[in-house]
Design a protein around this nucleic acid. Structure first.
Lengths: 259, 259
DNA sequence: CGACGACATTGACGCAGATCAAAATCACCT
DNA sequence: AGGTGATTTTGATCTGCGTCAATGTCGTCG
């Protein structure tokens, strides 16, 4: 299925790609930046070689030099408590930024590891800082992305604080679905790059519970699962389970944003 | 008990106070800003009249105009789900900023309400944005404070995902204790401006559980509680509870798992 | 290809904490 | 003061999900 020719195309595709040609630029840092200014941003970004599954982008405690944008593949971030326990804090998809939690004291509080082969753009923070002093649109987008992260984390807190196991998993799947959709992929059929254990850990559940929920949801006709692949058969109902803050809500006030 | 003279002093104190004279400036936006530049920040900040307990600073859905710094008193932020349920997302003490979660789409995703009489500084966001384009030290501090918020939220997520009820309450009390200490108050004796219900909601527990935990912790000699007032009698042990796992009265299992 | 280890599913059981219920205490009126 | 509603405490019961345990399945490598 792969020829040397297609491989060449892939490498070019994954290794160069300036921001202006990147299909993710409307989700990422370049959003709203004029073409002329975009070159200056491009100039400070380092496209790193792909990192393999299991390889770390940085580890907890590492000194903070840069934030990273996922270009392809996916990452997970996690904390390690002194007793060696791991707490998964999030999963990052293409177009999402990682490492903004390290700005405050120049050391990473989490570790970031690739869940599958992934490529990232490294954005040296000191350069980003000075450039965003010069480009208001860049400054604005950086603040927006950090604000978005705060909001997403709050959403997760709410899920953990008040949802049942089934609702948590539904919310998780809907979140992934929405994010895949934004990135041009199918919102109903996608791959889970993380293990059941990672999902359970992230959602504050036991691994066995997640497994049971998948079979239960399958039996209820909500989805199909085969190993890593999921297909959402009834996204509507999953949205309701999740706490209903998905698209299409007729009886609502102004074009609404719900928490 | 009040003369016109003392009242004048109080009003001056609570209504004016430039950043440079504010005891909280090393926790707040002014940190790291040179005296000359501080005046420019001061100029855009509006000191609002105190808001009463129960009064809202903003409500979910309100258009986003400004972020706020708590000067005195305390706030809580909360989301309301479509079924009317409330989810407490955080409590803000003097020196802390609220509203940064609204930057991304110019509407507040949460509501903010005073838990007791409180005064806040209103910082119009568009002015803050342009000023931080001119003052690198302000830009840096704004990014740091947002990064701090991300980090705090992640900490809360971890607590919700993997701690038992008792550990959650301990973590909450230690967090408050630390924050009061940073603000120059006693780290062992302070007032809970929020109700048991708010604490329970924030920690993802039932109100009754929180009440029972307070009595249990009291019986165990960890703290004293009288209505709203708490005194931490064994901060060390509470820290252990809050952090990793800790041996406790019930029949001991192997060594400690997630409950 | 067969075997080993990592990951996933399924079942049985118990407990932490939710829920239901009621009493006690506090805050705030007139 | 004293009465009323909100808040908190305490008790009794129920249950969702964690824990333990065993079996099943996939991916990988000799």
């Amino acid at each position: 299925m792969s020829t040397s020719k297609s491989e060449t195309v892939v490498s070019l595709n994954s290794l160069k790609v300036a921001c202006r040609e990147c299909s993710l630029n409307s989700l990422c840092l370049p959003l709203g930046i004029a073409a002329a200014d975009l070159e200056r941003l491009d100039a400070i970004i380092d496209r790193k070689r792909p990192i393999a599954r299991g390889e770390h982008l940085y580890r907890c405690g590492d000194s903070f030099q840069a934030i990273y944008a996922v270009r392809s593949g996916s990452l997970k971030t996690y904390a390690t408590s002194e007793d060696g326990q791991e707490q998964v804090m999030g999963f990052q998809l293409p177009g999402e930024l990682v490492g903004m939690d390290a700005i405050v004291d120049s050391a990473h509080p989490l570790s970031a590891v690739a869940l599958e082969t992934a490529s990232v753009c490294e954005i040296p923070f000191s350069k980003l800082e000075s450039l965003s002093g010069e480009l208001p649109s860049l400054q604005r987008q950086l603040l927006r992305l950090m604000s978005q992260e705060i909001r997403d984390d709050q959403k997760t807190m709410a899920v953990l604080a008040q949802k049942s196991a089934e609702e948590r998993l539904a919310a998780f799947l809907i979140s992934l679905s929405t994010r895949f959709h934004q990135r041009g992929f199918s919102p109903v059929r996608f791959n889970l790059s993380m293990s059941r254990g990672d999902i359970a850990n992230y959602l504050g559940l036991a691994l066995e519970t997640v497994s049971r929920l998948f079979t239960r949801m399958h039996d209820d006709g909500l989805l199909r699962v085969d190993r890593k692949e999921v297909e959402l058969l009834d996204r509507e109902k999953l949205c309701l389970f999740a706490g209903a803050n998905c698209a299409h809500q007729p009886p609502r006030k102004t074009s609404g944003h719900t928490p």
